[in-house]
């Protein structure tokens, strides 16, 4: 028996919004420690890794490890039927071929349930090694989204250059060149507005704008985003999900032809 309950459907809606542009379907691996999802996008350029800890749920029970392959378009249709403040419960029997998603209004006067067919997805799992990153940048998630959106107008690629002074995002194309520099913030009143750079050595890497923009669909989940970079390894873009877990996106760098 698997049962997981969250106080607010809005969290699950935001999580789905953060992955459904990259993935058509995905396997949710459930165990007593929580729910994990790891999947590459269709082009195998990026990897999404979602971790939801069992202690972050209002109720969590998972008697046997369970892999639930879900069509994310179908799940989005179901979640559209929930009000943001509804409770949401996911339930499945062991070895079941369906999952039930139930919404309850705050006053318990409206209860709706949706049964969704599960899929058998033959998904590969990739082992992600620990990396000592050269640069780790923490910055406001909305600022990162804004930069990715703005620079995508100028080029398919964005160059991220990080030094101890700051981080520079550049794009160059037919229109010309765009550069956006962010300095590390001195003192800020609000932690969520800070730009913090931890640098071992400077790094310059090039990434495809369309993937960065897809990652920023996670912006509503978190006030801050963390970018971890190292030469010749994938960029890690991480959004914390408060009291519940995190979503990490890995993006392979572009290399010169």
């Amino acid at each position: 028996m698997f049962e997981a309950r969250l106080g607010q459907a809005t969290i699950l809606k935001k999580i789905l919004d953060a992955i459904k542009d990259l993935l058509n379907e995905a396997t949710f691996d459930c165990s007593d420690s929580g729910i994990q999802l790891q999947a590459m996008d269709n082009s195998h350029v990026s990897l999404v890794s979602l971790t939801l800890r069992s202690d972050g749920f209002d109720k969590f029970r998972c008697d046997r490890n369970l892999s639930m392959g879900m069509n994310l378009g179908s799940m989005a249709k179901i979640l559209k039927c929930a009000n943001n403040e509804d409770n949401v419960t996911m339930k499945a029997q062991d070895n079941a071929d369906t999952v039930t998603i139930m919404f309850e209004s705050a006053n318990q006067e409206k209860v709706s349930d949706y049964e969704m067919k599960l899929m058998n997805l033959d998904q590969e799992h990739l082992g992600i090694p620990e990396t000592d990153f050269s640069c780790v940048v923490r910055m406001p998630a909305m600022e990162f989204a804004r930069i990715c959106r703005d620079l995508a107008q100028f080029s398919e690629s964005v160059v991220i250059c990080c030094t101890k002074e700051g981080v520079k995002f550049s794009a160059s194309g037919d229109v010309g060149t765009a550069n956006i520099k962010l300095a590390q913030t001195g003192s800020v009143d609000k932690e969520e507005e800070a730009v913090i750079i931890e640098m071992q050595e400077p790094v310059t890497l090039t990434f495809a704008c369309r993937y960065l923009n897809a990652f920023t669909k996670a912006t509503p989940l978190s006030t801050q985003v963390q970018l971890s970079m190292c030469a010749d390894v994938p960029l890690v873009v991480e959004y914390a999900i408060k009291d519940l877990g995190h979503i990490r996106y890995y993006l392979a760098p572009k290399i010169e032809d």
């Binding site: 195998h44 350029v45 990026s46 990739l126 082992g127 994938p234 392979a252 010169e256």
Partner: peptide, 12 residues
């Protein structure tokens, strides 16, 4: 040139 993400990580 865009590299694939699976060229960086091992399949398990």
């Amino acid at each position: 040139m865009q590299r694939g993400i699976d060229s960086f990580f091992k399949r398990i």
